[in-house]
């Protein structure tokens, strides 16, 4: 995956995002993401998660640092998984809000197109704030678009 492809994918919007972690007993955990943004010239990725849902994920990351994020474009089903090591987390600032806004706007527009305006309205009613940005280094990227090629390493 070239840097341009990486940038285009992360900036496209319309992504369904989930961040996976695990605890010391190897019990996996999940939290939904509402946007992603590249950091450090594409060497790291920030994912924006709701603070109310973040406790287990943050505890796991502080304990062992391992992160696996899956992002799927809800229109094309193009899917990527990013794996890496926890760097930091901070409250989401003004500079990150456009990324979140773009992702959600595209996501809701695609949902409205395929599933109707009622579903889109329900998504708009989600109260996801406050958000925090969890940043991890990008060590590996995998293609996870549904099909026999899913799982192929692409970085």
């Amino acid at each position: 995956m070239t840097q341009l492809e990486l940038t285009e994918f992360t900036n496209a919007g319309g992504l369904a995002i989930a961040l996976g972690t695990r605890n010391s007993e190897l019990q996996p955990a999940f939290v939904r993401g509402f946007g992603i943004s590249l950091r450090n010239d594409g060497k790291a990725l920030s994912v924006f998660i709701s603070k109310t849902q973040a406790a287990q994920t943050l505890a796991n990351l502080k304990e062992n640092g391992r992160a696996a994020l899956v992002a799927a474009h809800v229109g094309t089903l193009t899917t990527r998984q990013f794996k890496g090591a926890y760097v930091s987390h901070t409250d989401v600032g003004e500079s990150d809000l456009p990324s979140v806004e773009k992702n959600l706007t595209e996501f809701i527009a695609i949902c409205a197109k395929y599933f109707g305006e009622q579903m889109a309205a329900q998504f708009r009613a989600f109260n996801i704030f406050p958000l925090i940005a969890v940043t991890f280094s990008i060590e590996d990227i995998f293609d996870q678009t549904p099909g026999p090629g899913a799982g192929k390493k692409i970085n």
């Binding site: 989930a18 190897l26 999940f30 799927a72």
Partner: peptide, 22 residues
Amino acid sequence: GVFPSVIVTCNKAGEPNATTIS
């Protein structure tokens, strides 16, 4: 099956894996 679900697993070495499932 309208929305893809997500599954997170972890191998015995401690590496988590997140993916969509149909």
